[in-house]
Nucleic acid binder design. Structure first.
Length: 374
DNA sequence: TCTGGGGTCCTAGGACCC
DNA sequence: TCTGGGGTCCTAGGACCC
């Protein structure tokens, strides 16, 4: 990158320039932003289960997903904040507005995390590091939240880079440094390798990514199955051609509710009311985003935390609360014997097989007169 | 480690079709 | 009566992510 009168860095960067941007301890950071009294203190969001823990709380071992009682034992002085969804949704919109203003291609991964493809912006907008630095400053100034950014040629390395740089950090891994960055990592640190996959690999003495790279694809397929084996093999060979994809359509809409244990089981009336409320939530979001779906899934979790799903596919895609609730009721009725035996601790409704509502409308028009209107 | 709410993708068997 | 080779769709479960 040649600046006025100086030459700072010269490097070869074949392929795309991908940023992985991630808000640090998102829900907890929003709470600290909105209440200055919380800044610098251990903050836990979520009462039953930890939904987010500020880095001050993480110093005590508190992690998201952890039970609230254990979190309070680890860090008794933590301030527990109830979640404020509307505030998080607002903050997310503001963060993504900055992402969109920065990059032509933004792929949303979650409420607080995205890939940005900035390939076309270099060198006019500066080096990859310049762009990432500006992004961090813009989010800090315009939204008031700390983000960490990883920059690399591939999604996996960008993601791992931001993970390594957290919190409030920036790490650029240039193409020539990719293997040196990835190979010393423990396999369970790799994005996409969870406890089950890690255990299978540990059984064979494989602990770091560099060791994975010595295995052939057929070997990994025999250990992990076809898709997973191929995927892990590609990552270990430092092959990741997945592009940043903007505006991916949703594949499902769901809502669920934990019912708590210990208390007496919910009455059939209470269960039906819960089902209706879940369907209402799901269909409202589907209507708002212009989507329909055909497959209704009933999610159940039992006293022993085992899970089950029951599904039914409707003849036509819909976002209507009536047909979806009718299907959910039918599935629930069929599952009552299992529920009576195992006890119910969670009920959820998910609609999958999603279609664009406008595409459905076009098909209806096509069917109505037998010709495409153009 | 005793567990919230929202997602994605893959696998496998069975029904059904040509 | 026994049997190929290919495909799609549906259902249920599992792994993984934040």
């Amino acid at each position: 990158v040649v600046g006025p009168g100086r030459c700072e860095h010269v490097f070869v960067w074949p392929g795309p320039i991908i940023l992985h941007a991630d808000v640090d301890a998102f829900f907890a950071s929003v709470e600290q932003r909105d209440d200055p009294g919380l800044r610098g203190l251990p903050v836990i969001v979520g009462t039953g289960v930890v939904m987010a823990a500020s880095y001050e709380a993480r110093d005590y071992g508190v992690r998201s997903g952890m039970g609230g009682s254990r979190a309070r034992r680890l860090c008794p002085q933590a301030i527990v904040a109830p979640s404020r969804w509307s505030a998080y949704v607002e903050a997310s919109k503001a963060v993504f507005a900055v992402f969109e203003a920065t990059a032509p291609l933004v792929e949303r991964l979650s409420i607080e995390e995205a890939f940005l493809d900035v390939s076309g912006l270099v060198p006019a907008a500066g080096s990859p590091r310049d762009i990432a630095t500006r992004l961090r400053e813009d989010v800090r100034e315009q939204v008031g939240l700390p983000i960490t950014v990883g920059v690399a040629r591939t999604k996996i390395v960008a993601k791992m880079a931001s993970r390594a740089a957290k919190p409030d950090g920036l790490l650029v891994v240039p193409p020539a440094a990719e293997r040196a960055f990835l190979y010393p990592l423990r396999i369970e640190q790799l994005w996409g390798i969870g406890p089950a996959t890690a255990a299978k690999l540990h059984d064979r003495g494989i602990r770091i990514v560099g060791q994975l790279a010595e295995l052939t694809e057929p070997t990994l397929v025999s250990i992990l199955g076809k898709a997973s084996g191929r995927h892990v093999h590609a990552l270990a060979q430092n092959r990741d051609r997945r592009p940043v994809q903007a505006n991916r359509p949703p594949r499902s809409f769901g809502a669920q509710r934990a019912l708590g244990r210990s208390r007496s089981p919910p009455t059939p009336e209470a269960l039906d009311a819960a089902l209706a409320a879940l369907v209402e939530r799901v269909t409202r979001r589907m209507l708002a985003s212009g989507h329909t779906g055909r497959t209704v899934l009933l999610r159940l979790r039992f006293d022993d935390f085992s899970r089950a799903t029951r599904s039914h596919t409707l003849p036509e895609a819909t976002a209507g609360a009536e047909p979806i609730l009718a299907a959910a009721r039918m599935l629930l009725a069929a599952a009552m014997p299992v529920i009576a035996r195992q006890g119910l601790t969670l009920v959820g409704v998910t609609v999958a097989n999603i279609a664009d509502a406008r595409a459905g409308l076009q098909l209806e028009l096509l069917g109505a007169d037998g010709l495409a209107a153009g």
